[in-house]
């Protein structure tokens, strides 16, 4: 399928047309000044300035909370204590303006969630329209961890933002079908040239020719685990969940039943390895009772355990944890320290 094009002035109409059949979400300027995901009804809601949104795209795939099933606890009711599948909304969602790093997180999270029907259901429900980056923030480092400003992992459709038009390219079967009857015109000669010359300002790589996923998988687990830098990394840490909750690839969860006034539901909600409760056993023993063990686990999981199991590093380099950590703990520094081991 050839790339399709849309003049910038037509985007508003395109979105409005789309919103008849889909719920559209995209980066929106929030009251407090930052960009975050919000419902889009027209162009005026959308803000495509460079950089990632405050929170990641994961809440569309791993909702906070995900209702697994519902039940009634009213003993008199006929269907009491029988499990009921939660109703799924009929309308599909379009996620517009997803940056390549966020899109890549969908691809990475799909690995551990391969057989998870809830995650797969959300994959079905969301059409991911990515937006390639023309500029990057000082906290971006996608090129360190296997991504790039034009990476297409996890996207159904990718969009180039040119001078006065948007170019849509499908990367999945679904993306192709989606674009088919949307009334987009074929790409012009001039635009094709512009794509070829699409200058993205990729963040500087860590160093020439270093593939850290490969590097780290060759390193000894024990050397990394017992490395001397952990104490210093941990010292300032507050053990809050900012990094894990803003991170697109932190996918850990906990499960709980909520019962109130005769109605009940089992929910799956975000958990964070930064919290002591995360590993607390019923016996009272906690294998990660100290702060240093929890901090180590977060980085080891992303940089060592995950690649050992699945291949790539479980980090997309969006830089959210770097940008919003209250005490400026920087995963890039930890990666550097890993390389030195």
């Amino acid at each position: 399928m050839k790339p399709l094009a849309l003049f910038k002035s037509e985007l508003d109409g395109f979105l409005k047309e789309l919103s008849r059949d889909y719920d559209i979400f995209g980066p929106k300027r929030q009251k407090k000044g930052y960009l975050d995901w919000g419902e889009i009804e027209g162009l005026s809601d959308l803000d495509l300035s460079p950089g990632v949104t405050k929170t990641s795209i994961k809440s569309f795939f791993l909702p906070q909370p995900e209702v697994l099933f519902e039940f009634s606890t009213r003993a008199r009711e006929e269907r009491a204590f029988r499990l009921k599948e939660p109703k799924c909304p009929d309308r599909k969602r379009v996620l517009f303006g997803v940056r390549p790093c966020d899109a890549r997180s969908i691809y990475l999270n799909s690995m551990p969630y391969k057989d998870d029907c809830y995650f797969q259901k959300n994959i079905e429900r969301n059409i991911v329209i990515g937006l390639f980056c023309k500029a990057h923030l000082s906290t971006c480092f996608c090129t360190w961890v296997g991504g790039s400003p034009t990476s297409t992992d996890g996207m159904d459709i990718g969009v180039y933002e040119l001078e006065d038009s948007f170019i849509f390219l499908p990367f999945s079967q679904r993306g192709q079908e989606f674009l088919r009857d949307k009334g987009l015109r074929e790409i012009g000669q001039k635009e094709e040239e512009q794509i070829d010359a699409y200058k993205n300002h990729a963040p500087e790589g860590i160093s020439e020719g270093v593939d850290i996923a490969k590097e780290f998988s060759q390193k000894s687990l024990f050397d990394l685990y017992d490395a001397r830098f952990w104490q210093e990394v941990t010292d300032p840490c507050l053990n809050c969940g900012t990094c894990t909750f803003l991170c697109p690839t932190c996918y850990c969860f906990d499960i709980q039943d909520e019962v109130l006034r005769g109605k009940g539901r089992r929910i799956r909600y975000w958990d964070s390895c930064m919290f002591p409760l995360f590993t607390l056993h019923a016996s009272g023993h906690n294998p990660r009772g100290e702060k240093v063990k929890r901090v180590r686990n977060r980085f080891m999981h992303k940089l060592k355990y995950f690649p050992d199991r699945f291949g790539p590093i479980s980090c997309v380099g969006c830089g959210r944890c770097v940008r919003d950590c209250p005490v400026s703990i920087d995963i890039r520094q930890v990666i550097r320290q890993f390389l030195e081991i």
Binding site: K32, L238, C240, F245, F275
Partner: peptide, 16 residues
Amino acid sequence: QEEISSCIRCYACRNA
């Protein structure tokens, strides 16, 4: 309601 609507329950406030 508005003030706390964006809370992600990361507990940074508590831990700080």
